[in-house]
């Protein structure tokens, strides 16, 4: 069984560009919609690119702003100025 890297975000306008960016950059992503929340799963590794979010948002986005819409996650996290990565790969 694959290990699942996952992120759960608010179901709101602020989170929507992030969600769209994840779906674009992680083509195998699966979405679970819940009231108020959305959970996105990807096998092994999930990536959020600042550039993609900025493209969806139409303005600058600091990856640390993820804290404003984040509910939960699974995977080893690595975050820098350009990317957030949740991964089980080593």
């Amino acid at each position: 069984m694959a290990q699942i890297a996952s992120i759960t975000l608010y179901q709101n306008d602020e989170a929507r560009p992030v969600m769209e960016a994840i779906l674009q950059d992680n083509p195998t992503a699966r979405v679970l919609n819940m009231p108020g929340a959305v959970k996105i799963d990807v096998d092994d590794e999930l990536v959020i690119n600042r550039a993609t979010v900025e493209e969806k948002l139409g303005s600058e986005w600091d990856p640390q702003q993820i804290h404003m819409v984040l509910i939960s996650m699974a995977g080893n996290l690595d975050e820098d100025d350009d990317q957030i990565k949740l991964s089980w790969k080593h």
């Binding site: 404003m68 984040l70 509910i71 939960s72 996650m73």
Partner: peptide, 12 residues
């Protein structure tokens, strides 16, 4: 959910 956004940090 406001609390849970902190939880992600706590999980980490």
């Amino acid at each position: 959910f406001s609390a849970q956004s902190d939880e992600s940090r706590h999980m980490t």
